[in-house]
Design a protein around this nucleic acid. Structure first.
Lengths: 149, 149
DNA sequence: TATTGTTATACTCTATAACTATA
DNA sequence: TATAGTTATAGAGTATAACAATA
């Protein structure tokens, strides 16, 4: 099978391939903890912003309010997170539970190993470059659809 | 909302964000042609390898045989592609139809515009670097799961 | 009126497992 | 036995649209 010259230089295609490769390993690592990449990202963002509401979390992650609902419902059922009374009657204040935060620390360690393993074929400098370029691309995320501000 | 320091340096998270951003625009561009990113990629790969069978296409795209089935069923219904008699009774030879190839040329032009628009916040050199790094990461794709060789 | 949470529904992409026919 | 295609099913991640309650 020949490679296709166009696909080689289509950013979206290469992103999708790399994403599946890296995310696949992350998924295997997270599964024993009952987590998925999306739930894991939500936990980290929550840890950095205790007490935030669901809409704010969605904006930070650049995902829809209804997608946040799903994640928090699951994380609450797993005792990672708690919905507390918010600053008014229509908002929730989201908090990591102490045990959830402890578990998250363990999970983060495991995920870092996965990340290192997956980026092993890059030099440290390449990895840093890649992260910077990805952030540039992803920073526009939600400026249209998910972050109507 | 604060950013989370860990998420900033987790490759999988930044890949996912960038992927959603870039693929989202591609999806909007492809939709009027009845295509999605996955179907589009299959078409390009098929154009480069006329007459290949479904399993080979799956390997080239690093996706499962059953995923190829879905894509080809749709593309055949849309008259982009045809299953012809293969080199033996259990293989299909996949071929782009002439009109499908013509349409693909138009679509490719539109997608290139999307790709350029999305990578506009990178310099040409950065875009090249990014593609090279992504290919390094994605090249392992399927060596375990999807490409048992 | 605008916003928050919620619910129901749907779509994309992919995978696994098992079957059938053929090699 | 091994491989190609097929089918059914499932899971992860997301979105849209509409509603109720609240601001």
């Amino acid at each position: 099978m020949k490679q296709d010259g166009d696909l080689e230089t289509i950013l979206g295609y290469q992103l999708q391939r790399a994403n599946l490769e890296i995310t696949g390993d992350a998924r295997r690592v997270l599964a024993p903890f009952g987590l998925t990449p999306a739930k894991f990202a939500a936990l980290l963002m929550l840890r950095a912003n205790p007490g935030c509401d669901q809409t704010a979390l969605g904006r930070a992650l650049s995902i829809n309010r209804s997608s946040v609902m799903k994640l928090i419902n699951l994380l609450e059922a797993q005792q990672f997170v708690e919905r507390r009374a918010g600053r008014n009657l229509r908002t929730n204040a989201l908090h990591l539970l102490p045990d959830g935060e402890a578990r998250l620390t363990t999970v983060l360690r495991a995920l870092r190993e996965s990340d290192d393993r997956m980026s092993a074929r890059l030099t440290a400098a390449e990895r840093t470059t890649l992260l910077a370029l990805l952030r540039k691309l992803g920073s526009a995320r939600g400026r249209n659809s998910a972050l109507p501000i």
